[in-house]
């Protein structure tokens, strides 16, 4: 059964006090839950947040499923999101994604067998002048080639 750490619980309580409306804390709380559950959210995380926040599970669940940055399934240690939208596509995003999946031997959305990588496609990440690009966990990597991107991933243990 998932439980928030005491530190995580305190952070959620702080978020509850931070905004004028209690519900405004749902988005930040989901980030905290996701971080404490190895990068994804399931029914147990929702239940734990609901208990701490006093907000119905149905509400938290509705918010969780709406936004793309909350992961619905287990995720590798490094979440590699390749921007797929127009400016990146014009500069080789499809080839980039294909190359990464092939070299890592994973399908889009799956976790690599060593647990290190999940490759997904993301919609426009606002880095169109430095295309193609990818986001790995919180960080942007820009002006990539399939080879340079793969070299970056090889260095991530």
């Amino acid at each position: 059964m998932f439980e928030l750490s005491s530190e995580g619980k305190q952070q959620v309580l702080n978020e509850l006090k931070r905004y004028e409306a209690k519900e405004s804390a749902v988005l930040p709380a989901l980030y905290i839950g996701q971080r404490e559950n190895k990068g994804f959210i399931n029914a147990e995380v929702i239940r734990a947040l609901s208990n701490v926040m006093g907000i119905p599970e149905s509400h938290i669940n509705e918010v969780f499923t709406f936004y793309s940055m909350y992961n619905k399934t287990p995720i590798g240690k490094y979440h590699v999101q390749v921007c797929r939208t127009l400016s990146c596509m014009l500069n080789g995003a499809k080839e980039l994604t294909h190359h990464l999946c092939k070299e890592l031997n994973v399908k889009l959305g799956d976790v690599s067998s060593d647990g290190r990588f999940t490759v997904t496609e993301a919609e426009c990440l606002g880095s169109c002048g430095t295309a193609p690009m990818m986001q790995i966990n919180d960080k942007y990597y820009e002006n990539l080639t399939p080879e340079s991107a793969m070299n970056l991933l090889r260095g991530m243990k």
């Binding site: 405004s24 989901l30 793309s68």
Partner: peptide, 10 residues
Amino acid sequence: MDIYRGAGAY
């Protein structure tokens, strides 16, 4: 003034 972090939705 405070910051609010979105969660991925155009």
